[in-house]
Computed example of a mutant assay.
Amino acid sequence: MNIWDQTWQWLSRPGRWSWSDPAGIPYRTLEHLGFSALSLAVAAILTIPFALWLAHYRRGAFLAGSVVNIGRAVPSFGLIILVWYLASRWQFSTSFWPLLIALVALALPPLFANTYAGVISVDAGAVDAARGTGHTETQIMLGVELPLASPVILAGARVAFLQLIATVAIGAIVNDGGGLGRYIVDGFAQGAGGYGEILAGGVAVVLLALACDGLFSLLTRLAVPKGLTATTAVRARAL
């Protein structure tokens, strides 16, 4: 049986398209998205307020550059294995927290760097005008700098989320869930008989990543505040 026949046979099995059966593609897709979205949300809560404050007061430029370099250097799989090993040594649960902690750590650099860069690039005239009309520093950060920097911040979230989508699949090695990556790991465990499952799982992850990329692109365009110049919007999407 060739790989195409294996794939078709695997896709045709009962429950494969169920929303409630753990073997179902819709079920695993939601699990994949849920883990990725949770990790992005935690990383955003930990990162964006701090980066916004640093950028507003023009502090931490060296830190922003260092975070970017560290984020590019840390291998995703190595970080997952390290956290899993530490959790197992300290007798913590290894079915959820190691993958979540590793994913949050991976999402921090692009969110921090883009938030900082976005706020730094806000037109100084807009900030001075808000300050001149009696706005407090907090009001300026939340009402002026954050909205104007939102396209750049969303561009960082887009990069982070796509990285998370890919890493959740790898994390199936150490996580009982693992989303769509579960198919790839289980397929490899079967040897030659699992090639169809590996192919289907890999294609599903790619399609999910493309769909999320398209949604984030649309969200970034919708988030551009009225009055923001086209040049700034293009620059934000390019980051």
Results as ranks from 00 to 15, higher is better:
Asp5His: 15
Ser76Lys: 08
Ile120Gly: 09
Leu142Met: 10
Gly193Cys: 05
Asp186Ser: 12
Ile3Asp: 14
Ala236Tyr: 02
Ala130Thr: 03
Ala155Cys: 15
Gly132Trp: 00
Trp8Ala: 15
Ala209Val: 02
Gln163Tyr: 09
Phe96Pro: 07
Leu30Val: 08
Ser66Tyr: 02
Ala126Arg: 03
Leu228Pro: 14
Leu162Tyr: 04
Gly78Trp: 02
Lys226Gln: 13
Ile81Arg: 10
Ala102Trp: 05
His32Ser: 02
Leu148Cys: 03
Ser150Met: 15
Val168Gly: 14
Thr115Arg: 05
Thr94Ser: 13
Pro14Leu: 02
His56Leu: 04
Leu106Val: 07
Phe96Ser: 11
Gly187Tyr: 04
Ala157Met: 13
Ile70Leu: 14
Arg72Lys: 09
Ile25Leu: 13
Val174Tyr: 00
Trp84Ala: 14
Val74Phe: 12
Pro98Ile: 03
Ile170His: 01
Ala124Asp: 13
Thr232Trp: 15
Trp53Glu: 09
Leu162Val: 10
Met141Asn: 07
Phe35Val: 08
His56Asn: 10
Leu30Tyr: 14
Gln6Cys: 12
Arg235His: 13
Pro22Val: 02
Cys212Gly: 06
Thr47Ile: 12
Ala61Thr: 04
Ala23His: 05
Asp176Gly: 12
Leu108Met: 15
Leu142Arg: 09
Leu99Met: 09
Arg182Trp: 14
Ala149Thr: 00
Gly132Val: 04
Ala204Pro: 06
Leu207Ser: 03
Pro22Tyr: 01
Met1Cys: 12
Ala192Leu: 13
Phe188Asn: 10
Gly178Ile: 03
Ser18Gln: 02
Thr138Gly: 14
Thr220Pro: 06
Leu111Arg: 12
Val152His: 02
Gln139Thr: 00
Ser36Leu: 04
Val68Tyr: 09
Gly193Pro: 08
Ser20Tyr: 11
Thr7Ser: 15
Leu103His: 05
Phe216Arg: 01
Pro14Trp: 03
Leu148Val: 04
Gly191Arg: 05
Phe50Pro: 04
Ala192Asn: 14
